[in-house]
Write a protein that binds this DNA or RNA. Structure first.
Length: 348
RNA sequence: GGCGCGGUACCCAAGUGGUAAGGGAGAGGUCUGCAAAACCUUUAUGCGCCGGUUCGAUCCCGGCCCGCGCCUCCA
């Protein structure tokens, strides 16, 4: 440790600082020249499964040296990006630097990304706190995979995210808005041509979106221009000032958004089905939210048939029957939207 | 005790030395057979608290309060 003067440059835990505030419970190891030294090679006990011969006896690599060895072998002395959770910054990454740079005299990584941990309901997620959820738990509660993803990605990686069920609901609603818009774009017949204002709006959104991502992956900031463009487009469509060329421009922006956020195409059913199959197999069906089960029983074909029947009823001005079907579907999580271009439905 | 990060509207959440993006929710309105969707209006003289620097601070500096992570037995 004492032979590597740069120790602490990543985390701020310099040797001086560590000495000043050292914990009470650190034992002094007589085998260490400096208490801050860490083992590069560990002695293998008799029950150790993986061990190798060495000049110092049978042993195995210390945790930190594993990473230095692997990165050097596959990425070279220096590489662009080293990522990890914030908990690993010290000591693990600090020690990787100390080892690798002592040997190579080159910077180990040119950029470090440390992801902050999330809180759940304002507290650290832990089993003993009772706020520990797996992705499968959330799916079985009826939340969509895409909503979980959006909720987690909407806060920049460097910031602490407070994960809540309200936040999931909010993400669910935001996704619905995006998907409704996406469906509107792809199913509406627009006249040929372009609206210069829309073209400019799409260009601006694209530029702002990329700028936000280029700004240390600021995903929260990146969302804003997308929603701005969404509103501008909806307004233009409502006013008949939106054309096929505009649709293509806006879809281009949405595509680059979706490369990162991946929410526009509804592929949520398969993740939910896998979670349900697991629950079935493990005898955990009691954990499944009743609303989720109610929604599962209805096939797309059955919905199409009911929607068609409702349209016929409406034509005959039998609104009572039409509303009855709509309510029936709503109970099973299916929402109907009437529009000039026909009837659309979606699963909530 | 040491090192680091954060506290912005009802909720989530960007952001900048020059007067607060975006999303969700609520309220009112337009449209609709009624809805849904969409759109419009509306919700922070205010950005944890107290000082300081400045023509001007949410943004800079100092102190305090609160929250989170790490502090080298394991990976």
């Amino acid at each position: 440790m004492t032979s590597f003067p740069n120790y602490g440059k990543l985390s701020g835990n310099t040797l001086e600082a560590l000495r000043a505030g050292h914990r009470q419970d650190v034992e002094i190891d007589p085998n260490k020249r400096n208490p801050a030294d860490f083992a590069l090679w560990k002695k293998a006990g008799p029950n150790r499964a993986l061990k190798w011969p060495s000049p110092w006896g049978e042993g195995f690599p210390g945790w930190h040296i594993e990473c230095s060895a692997m990165s050097m072998e596959y990425l070279g002395d220096s590489f662009d990006l080293h990522a990890g959770g914030e908990d690993l910054m010290f000591p693990h990454h600090e020690n990787e630097i100390a080892q690798s740079e002592s040997v190579t005299h080159k910077p180990l990584a040119r950029h470090w990304m440390h992801v902050r941990f999330l809180l759940v309901d304002g507290r650290k997620m832990s089993k003993s706190e009772g706020n520990f959820y797996t992705l499968r738990d959330l799916l079985l509660k009826g939340y969509k995979a895409s909503a979980i993803r959006l909720a987690l990605i909407s806060v920049p990686y460097r910031h602490q995210l407070n994960f809540t069920f309200d936040g999931l609901t909010e993400a669910t609603n935001a996704i619905e808005r995006l998907r409704t818009f996406y469906r509107r774009l792809t199913t509406t017949a627009f006249a040929e041509g372009t609206n210069p204002a829309m073209q400019a709006a799409a260009e601006k959104a694209q530029a702002e979106y990329m700028e936000a991502l280029a700004n240390d992956l600021n995903t929260a900031e990146a969302r804003a221009p997308i929603f701005d463009l969404l509103r501008a487009s909806n307004t233009a469509i409502d006013q008949g000032q939106f054309f096929a060329g505009d649709r293509d421009a806006v879809l281009g922006v949405l595509d680059s958004f979706d490369v990162v956020f991946d929410v526009l195409e509804d592929r949520d059913a398969s993740a939910t089905e896998r979670a349900l199959a697991w629950a079935e197999k493990e005898g955990r069906m009691a954990d499944v939210a009743p609303e989720l089960l109610a929604r599962q029983g209805l096939s797309d074909e059955a919905i199409d048939a009911l929607v068609a029947e409702r349209t016929r009823a409406k034509k005959m001005r039998n609104f009572a029957r039409a509303d009855q079907i709509r309510n029936e579907l709503a109970e099973k999580g299916v929402v109907i939207e009437d529009s000039k271009d026909g009837v659309r439905w979606k699963r909530k």
